[in-house]
Design a protein around this nucleic acid. Structure first.
Length: 598
RNA sequence: UGCUCGAUGGUGUAAUGGUAGCACAAGCGACUCUGACUCGCUUUGUCUAGGUUCGAGUCCUAGUCGGGCAGCCA
């Protein structure tokens, strides 16, 4: 009934080219313990694409009794915020709860890499610890001091120099993929001058952008990232984690590999766009004569689910243009949106692990995710009766005050299903879809003169259709077959259709939000204007009638409204006595099929 | 026209020189007090051309097509 027990049945142990490498490295004795990391930049919300990366990194850690560090790649303070640190930490812990939380690597609060001696050589290292009240995630910004020391070392080795070129000139000097760049006029400064200048950069003597520290590699390299990439830039801005100690900040390519090294990361797994950066990743580490084993970078293709957008910039546009109600709108592909939608973490894991890990740019069929969600919810969700679009049905042979208590199964998927009581009364509501005055062929539901079973109650026969002056149906008058009740001899009498219902006065009215996919095309991301393919019917709000027991629903509960879909309380807009339910996903419907897409 | 990564049914993913398999989707059927679930059956695939080999999705060569790379973003 709830998702508190998040222990999902394990998917078959995954196998992919990265896990093959990990296994081979282990077999070769390269590492005694596997340490991976999930390194988000705290400048936005985590989305479903990150879920794949999280499950890959934590999955490898848990399969090898290793660790996966949560590390904030916070080297660009201008774009980052503590708010994101908090939401990301929360989202990661939600996604791995009950699955890989024992592998989550934190560090003692306030800890920095500690000096040590390895093979007679100086070294620094910061090992992971389990999450606890006195621990916190890792931050690249905690390594700024050590990163600075490494930079001084690179300068001394003649492998880095301070460059005075403007951003514009730097770009011009870099050339293009087809044309080699040319050396910066500052490339051959002496070590002493570089050391002095870099110290003064740190001391704050120069304005933003006046100088930078660059790696001295090869301005003619066919790989753009090897054309003397920037290592440090001057930014006179305070940092959300490091405070106001720094006015120079390292860039990703310099900070990331060394952060990996300092934490003892063995396998640094990232997405395909970093393939071109790998030579630089290796260059930095190999230039420093580091005494411990170096981390290695491996790349896989990111997850792009159909009918979704996974681009921070575009997601932000949806929020800014009020297409959705915020980052955690249940239609958003953010982890907070999916969670609010009612999707269990276990279902998300099942999905992202199931799609596999390759280097092929794939568009993943959204049906795969929907299937994973339904499969998970089918075992998790308690069945309830709810009518989304009510139409009144009167059981003419029941007394006005008569109440028949029926036993309803909570979850037929349980090994030992439990039951609850639902009240059948003279007046009930049924789904307006479940009645047709002029039924199409093979219509199993209620039609003139026809019989249908009210689930858990008994069989009714439609005698009379009452309409108002405008001709709209206001009431269906039926005869209830008492011999078809539970426990009666006729209870196993077969009728073709079984429909759901709720008592008219022993039920509650509630807002129900029916969510659908946010876009009308499978690949909104490649659209010239993705805002033009927003699904205008992505949200429909109805006032539904729910069986009375739903008044006790809790935020963690998952429900299947029988014959409709899976629902959960909205965590934000539900107030005491006034529940708001979100439709997580509809039940599969092979009768009123939606036309196949594309 | 540089570098780099990739290509297996409709979609995604296995097969590490030896019967092209799985999942989703689709179709048909069975079951059903959820037109759900479950079960059974079916359709559909190795980018092209050469080569090596007893044997090639896999190895080699050449091509074709697609992705990524010129932030002081990550």
């Amino acid at each position: 009934m709830t998702v508190e027990n998040n222990a999902a049945p394990e998917p078959a142990k995954p196998s992919d080219f990265i896990r093959d490498i990990v296994a081979a490295d282990l077999a070769a004795g390269l590492h005694q313990k596997i340490v991976t990391r999930f390194p988000p930049e705290p400048n936005g919300y985590l989305h479903i694409g990150h879920a794949k990366s999280i499950c890959l990194n934590f999955g490898i850690a848990r399969e090898n009794n290793g660790r996966c560090n949560l590390r904030f790649d916070d080297t660009n303070p201008a774009k980052e915020d503590i708010e994101y640190v908090e939401s990301i930490t929360r989202d990661v812990q939600w996604l791995i709860a009950g699955w890989a939380d024992h592998c989550l690597g934190f560090k003692p609060k306030g800890a920095h890499p500690a000096p040590q001696v390895v093979n007679g050589r100086p070294d620094h290292h910061l090992a992971p610890v389990a999450p606890a009240p006195d621990s916190e995630p890792f931050f690249a910004s905690d390594y700024f001091e050590q990163l600075y020391a490494y930079a001084m070392e690179l300068i001394k080795k003649g492998k880095a120099y301070v460059c005075d070129l403007s951003a514009e000139d730097t770009e011009a000097y870099r050339g293009s993929p087809e044309k080699p760049g040319k050396d910066s006029p500052f490339r051959n400064r002496t070590v002493e001058e570089n050391l002095d200048l870099f110290r003064r950069m740190r001391a704050g003597e120069f304005p933003n952008g006046a100088r930078s520290l660059r790696a001295k590699i090869d301005m003619a390299s066919p790989n753009m990232w090897l054309r003397d990439p920037l290592l440090y830039r001057i930014r006179h801005v305070p940092h959300h984690h490091a405070g106001d100690k720094w006015c120079i900040y390292p860039l990703y390519d310099y900070a990331h590999c060394l952060s990996d090294y300092l934490e003892g990361i063995t396998h640094s797994i990232c997405t395909l766009e970093f393939v071109d950066h790998r030579p630089l990743y290796d260059w930095v580490l190999e230039s420093l004569d580091l005494p411990r084993a170096l981390p290695r970078q491996y790349e896989f293709s990111k997850l792009i689910p159909g009918y979704m957008i996974v681009s921070k910039r575009k997601l932000l546009q949806l929020v800014d243009n009020n297409v959705v109600a915020g980052w955690d709108d249940p239609r958003m592909p953010t982890l907070s949106g999916l969670r609010r939608r009612g999707i269990p973490a276990s279902a998300l894991r099942r999905f992202v692990i199931g799609v596999g890990v390759t280097k092929f740019d794939a568009l993943t069929d959204i049906a795969v995710m929907e299937h994973a969600v339904r499969e998970e919810l089918n075992t998790l969700a308690a069945r309830r009766l709810a009518v989304l679009r009510p139409i009144k049905l009167v059981l003419t042979n029941l007394a006005a005050d008569e109440v028949i208590e029926c036993d309803a199964t909570n979850n037929p998927q349980d090994e030992h299903p439990t039951t609850r009581k639902v009240a059948l009364t003279r007046e009930v509501f049924i789904e307006s879809d479940d009645f047709a005055e002029a039924p199409p062929p093979k219509y199993f539901r209620l039609k003139p003169g026809g019989e249908v079973r009210l689930k858990y109650a008994g069989i009714v026969k439609l005698d009379e259709i009452v309409k108002d002056a405008a001709g709209a149906v206001t009431e269906l008058r039926c005869t209830f077959d008492r011999t078809s009740c539970q426990g009666e001899p006729g209870s196993d009498r077969k009728v073709k259709g079984t429909i759901h219902w709720v008592s008219a006065h022993r039920s509650l009215a509630a807002e129900v939000r029916l969510y659908d996919r946010l876009f009308t095309v499978p690949e909104p991301g490649v659209e010239e204007d993705f805002l033009k393919v927003v699904n205008p019917q992505s949200l429909e709000v109805v006032t539904a009638r729910l069986e009375a027991s739903l008044a006790d629903a809790g935020l963690e509960d998952r429900f299947q409204f029988e014959r409709i879909g899976y629902f959960a309380l909205d965590s934000k807009d539900t107030t005491p006595g006034k529940p708001v339910f979100n439709r997580t996903i509809s039940l599969k419907d092979t009768w009123t099929k939606t036309p196949p897409q594309k």
